[in-house]
């Protein structure tokens, strides 16, 4: 919804080196976050739903390593479980938006004609429908459940992948070297895989990086208007909303889930664009 056309500037050039510093930093960050999300829930034995009202808003370092939220729940445990859920959900949402978006985009550019026009019309109509409306309506079928939330977000997000994939592919297809490959008798799948995909991949990665951040933020936006996951599910976006009223007393508790989202998007950005910072 929020992130379109990041890479309209055209394909990023291949990097001078495949592994510049920024990409290595990015990958390092992502590895750390993945370890936190995957191993954290196993290593932290505190129950993220266990409340202890006498430890409400306990500070960092006391009985709780990262402090406690207003119900006295361990923030470390909630962050670890929340990271697993949020990152997993964001990845799933991004993939289910990117894969069909990419495939349809390439298909539209490759086939042209009626197929292309129909797909473009469809994407325009989806864009013209408020994304929020789609999510709200899907959510109304099963409030607080995971599936409609993720479906609704994917439905709103696939269009930008489609648009970028289509315009870039269309531009590539008229380039002489692809014409030449076609004349030389290379098959469609070969050309797509070896000549088109490598060119549009960096762009789509950039889009994907922002799309994951957008997905998590969208969930927090939805919880801010009281639609979203059911309590006591730990989820980074809704944790921010839940803790927001306590911003004056426990500012760090509000910022920590935001920090995780920030590191994720930064890591993705650095990895996806590592080669482009010249």
């Amino acid at each position: 919804m929020m992130l379109q056309m990041q890479g309209l500037a055209g394909p990023d050039r291949p990097a001078a080196t495949a592994w510049p510093l920024s990409r290595r930093i990015g990958l390092g960050l992502l590895a750390l976050l993945a370890a936190f999300a995957l191993l954290g829930p196993l290593l932290v034995d505190a129950d993220p739903a266990r409340q202890d009202l006498s430890a409400s808003l306990a500070p960092i370092g006391s009985d709780f390593l990262l402090g406690a939220d207003h119900y006295g729940r361990s923030l470390l445990a909630r962050l670890a479980h929340g990271a697993r859920l949020s990152f997993g959900m964001a990845l799933l949402t991004m993939l289910s938006a990117a894969v069909p978006g990419l495939l349809l985009g390439v298909l539209a550019a490759w086939r042209g004609g009626v197929a292309e026009r129909a797909l473009v019309a469809l994407s325009d109509i989806v864009l013209a429908l408020p994304g929020l409306l789609l999510v709200l309506i899907l959510l109304a079928f099963a409030p607080g459940h995971f599936l409609p939330l993720y479906l609704g977000l994917s439905l709103a997000l696939w269009v930008e992948f489609f648009r970028v994939a289509r315009t870039t592919t269309a531009r590539l297809l008229v380039e002489p070297r692809i014409e030449a490959a076609r004349l030389l008798g290379f098959g469609t799948p070969y050309i797509l895989r070896h000549q088109v995909l490598p060119e549009i991949a960096p762009l789509l990665l950039t889009l994907a990086a922002f799309a994951m951040g957008t997905a998590i933020l969208a969930i927090s936006t939805l919880s801010a208007i009281s639609v979203g996951l059911q309590p006591p599910t730990p989820e980074l976006g809704s944790m921010i909303v839940e803790l927001l009223p306590y911003y004056a007393e426990a500012p760090l508790a509000v910022l920590m889930p935001g920090l995780l989202i920030f590191l994720l998007v930064l890591g993705l950005q650095l990895t996806a664009r590592g080669g482009t910072v010249r």
Binding site: F210, T221, I240, V241, F262, V265, R278
Partner: peptide, 26 residues
Amino acid sequence: AGSGLDRLALVGAVALRALPPFVLGL
């Protein structure tokens, strides 16, 4: 491109995009 300003701007942009709008507004 690639300068300190560029990197700082990237971090700033990511930070702003990672902050839910209501937190930024507050």
